[in-house]
Computed example of a mutant assay.
Amino acid sequence: MNRLRRIVLVLAATAALCSAQSMAHGADKSPFAEQAAKAGYTGVQTAALQAQVDDVVAQTGGTQVALNQVAWKGGVTTLVLPGETRARRLDQSPAQVEAWPYGCSYLYFCTYANRDYSGAQTFLYDCVSTAVLPFRSYVNNQTRGTIARWGGHVVGQSKPAPSGSPFDTITDYITVKPC
């Protein structure tokens, strides 16, 4: 009986180990693991970035569409890549987001998690009220004269496009109507 018990325990432990290894290898085969490897990110960096992406997906109900991007109804959130301070797509160079309009494409209203147009960036493109993540700066790069408005605990509006503010502090989840 003791021998049978030991065999069962060894088999159970082996099955558990194989399952854990299989899950670890499965994580490496995520659709975006190739993007991370090509960009030269370590497993630790990739896992930390993925945790941030998972948080944005949970908060917005969106879908991960790239290593550091989540698309959701009315917007796209781009997270900061490891070792950088400004959000950018993988096909952009860091230099492309260092100057006006800080990676905010024409016809978009963009919010940034941190001051000075840094941190996670959210592009808003639908002309409807959309719940957004807290932001500390914004770029209004829509058609000339367009004003974005926001509400919630703080009510305000942007300057007419093209404009931006490196020091606004909207720390609550609010709704923004880009136009």
Results as ranks from 00 to 15, higher is better:
residue 30 S to G: 14
residue 170 I to S: 11
residue 166 P to H: 11
residue 77 T to Y: 00
residue 62 G to C: 00
residue 53 V to S: 05
residue 35 Q to V: 01
residue 103 G to V: 10
residue 21 Q to I: 14
residue 71 A to E: 15
residue 22 S to E: 13
residue 86 R to I: 00
residue 45 Q to R: 01
residue 52 Q to T: 03
residue 156 G to L: 04
residue 172 D to H: 05
residue 3 R to Y: 04
residue 149 R to D: 07
residue 29 K to P: 00
residue 169 T to N: 14
residue 1 M to P: 15
residue 38 K to Q: 07
residue 49 L to R: 07
residue 7 I to Q: 12
residue 16 A to N: 13
residue 59 Q to A: 14
residue 14 T to G: 11
residue 84 E to Y: 01
residue 146 T to N: 13
residue 22 S to N: 14
residue 82 P to W: 04
residue 142 Q to A: 06
residue 165 S to I: 02
residue 44 V to I: 07
residue 141 N to G: 09
residue 149 R to S: 10
residue 81 L to G: 03
residue 93 S to M: 04
residue 151 G to T: 13
residue 63 T to M: 03
residue 80 V to F: 02
residue 162 P to D: 10
residue 166 P to Y: 07
residue 135 F to K: 11
residue 1 M to H: 10
residue 22 S to F: 15
residue 147 I to K: 11
residue 119 G to V: 02
residue 33 A to T: 09
residue 73 K to I: 01
residue 114 N to L: 08
residue 116 D to S: 11
residue 168 D to C: 07
residue 8 V to N: 10
residue 96 Q to H: 13
residue 72 W to Q: 04
residue 52 Q to Y: 04
residue 70 V to M: 02
residue 68 N to E: 14
residue 27 A to Q: 14
residue 72 W to I: 04
residue 22 S to C: 12
residue 130 T to S: 01
residue 93 S to C: 07
residue 157 Q to W: 07
residue 68 N to K: 12
residue 120 A to N: 12
residue 121 Q to M: 15
residue 35 Q to A: 06
residue 157 Q to F: 07
residue 78 T to R: 08
residue 67 L to T: 03
residue 134 P to E: 10
residue 94 P to M: 12
residue 116 D to E: 13
residue 150 W to A: 06
residue 123 F to Y: 15
residue 159 K to H: 06
residue 115 R to L: 11
residue 61 G to A: 00
residue 104 C to R: 01
residue 170 I to V: 15
residue 148 A to Y: 07
residue 112 Y to C: 05
residue 45 Q to P: 00
residue 131 A to N: 15
residue 159 K to A: 08
residue 128 V to A: 15
residue 94 P to V: 09
residue 131 A to H: 05
residue 52 Q to W: 02
residue 49 L to S: 08
residue 160 P to R: 12
residue 164 G to E: 15
residue 76 V to E: 10
residue 179 C to K: 00
residue 139 V to S: 06
residue 66 A to N: 10
residue 164 G to W: 15
residue 78 T to I: 15
residue 56 V to S: 01
residue 77 T to D: 05
residue 135 F to I: 12
residue 142 Q to R: 11
residue 37 A to V: 15
residue 108 Y to I: 07
residue 67 L to V: 04
residue 113 A to C: 02
residue 170 I to D: 07
residue 129 S to F: 13
residue 116 D to C: 09
residue 112 Y to I: 03
residue 11 L to Y: 14
residue 132 V to N: 04
residue 137 S to D: 12
residue 67 L to D: 00
residue 27 A to R: 14
residue 96 Q to Y: 13
residue 118 S to R: 13
residue 33 A to K: 11
residue 28 D to P: 08
residue 10 V to E: 08
residue 150 W to I: 02
residue 118 S to N: 08
residue 154 V to F: 03
residue 108 Y to N: 11
residue 171 T to I: 08
residue 89 R to E: 01
residue 177 K to S: 12
residue 98 E to T: 07
residue 54 D to N: 14
residue 111 T to R: 07
residue 112 Y to Q: 06
residue 80 V to I: 08
residue 133 L to A: 13
residue 68 N to T: 05
residue 152 G to K: 01
residue 8 V to F: 14
residue 23 M to Q: 00
residue 74 G to N: 04
residue 85 T to H: 02
residue 92 Q to S: 05
residue 149 R to V: 09
residue 164 G to Q: 15
residue 84 E to V: 02
residue 121 Q to H: 12
residue 90 L to G: 05
residue 143 T to H: 09
residue 167 F to D: 11
residue 173 Y to H: 14
residue 65 V to C: 01
residue 57 V to E: 05
residue 148 A to T: 05
residue 147 I to Q: 03
residue 65 V to T: 10
residue 96 Q to P: 10
residue 149 R to E: 09
residue 24 A to C: 09
residue 140 N to L: 02
residue 51 A to L: 08
